[in-house]
């Protein structure tokens, strides 16, 4: 499987994603500069975390205008797999490839820690290797991960199964205490209606090796590999 990791000015998790895809998953991977527009030959696009354009405006609000985003839109429209992690998720929201928006964390502080996530839907290319209700332990690191959307939209997303991951306690209980940023309905990760575009605040690349304290991120990577028939 061939991955493309998109590099925006200010991305800072692109090397981490590249490392995990190449060294841990043993897959082909290349960087895609934000000014490129030719994505031929790639099976999965990764929009990595970081602070594209410094996030001086709203997170992801400038990166969405990068030339590569037109190509990403086409790629997604043709059913290609696209995953946006943290800042990548924010960019996908700004680009309208995923519904909803991000607010600052309700603590008003950046927060970096391991959290627990409950898998809400396993019928997606991103969660096929997990069980429904399975609890994953993966870190977050963000200042604006407070996901929000209109109540009606949220209900629709729930009905269609677009809510993929929710912040929860160690036993899977979805509680206000387990919500690290004030996200609506404890939402940590969502898909588009076609399920080929996935955005999540937690960093699966930081939980892909035993030595880093968790390998639960592999459920997500390996699900994508399986979905692509690898």
């Amino acid at each position: 499987m061939r991955f493309g990791v998109i590099v925006f000015p200010g991305s800072n998790c692109e090397m981490d994603c590249h490392y995990v895809i190449e060294k841990v998953l043993g897959q082909e991977v290349r960087y895609v500069w934000h000014q490129e527009s030719d994505l031929r030959g790639l099976d999965c696009l990764v929009l990595p975390g970081g602070f594209s354009y410094g996030d001086y405006l709203r997170c992801g609000a400038i990166a969405r205008f990068s030339p590569v985003m037109e190509a990403v839109r086409d790629f997604a429209a043709r059913g290609g797999l696209v995953i946006g992690i943290c800042n990548g998720f924010q960019i996908l929201l700004e680009a309208g490839l995923l519904p909803g928006a991000m607010l600052r964390n309700n603590s008003l502080s950046f927060v970096c820690r391991f959290v627990h996530l409950r898998v809400e839907n396993r019928d997606t290319p991103w969660t096929g290797k997990a069980e429904r209700g399975q609890v994953l332990r993966i870190p977050i690191a963000h200042g604006e991960g407070n996901y929000t959307a209109g109540e009606g939209l949220l209900d629709e997303m729930e009905r269609r199964g677009q809510i993929i991951l929710r912040y929860c306690g160690p036993a899977g209980e979805v509680t206000p205490e387990a919500n690290p940023n004030g996200s609506a309905r404890n939402i940590a990760g969502i898909c588009n209606e076609g399920f080929n575009v996935f955005g999540l605040m937690p960093h699966p690349e930081r939980a892909s090796e035993e030595i880093l304290g968790s390998t639960d991120g592999l459920f997500i990577w390996e699900s994508a590999l399986a979905a692509a028939g690898v």
């Binding site: 981490d16 950046f110 970096c112 930081r206 090796e209 880093l212």
Partner: peptide, 12 residues
């Protein structure tokens, strides 16, 4: 916890 202490995947 306000500092990203994990990025670069080296912190063990």
């Amino acid at each position: 916890e306000q500092y990203d202490h994990m990025v670069q995947l080296n912190t063990v």
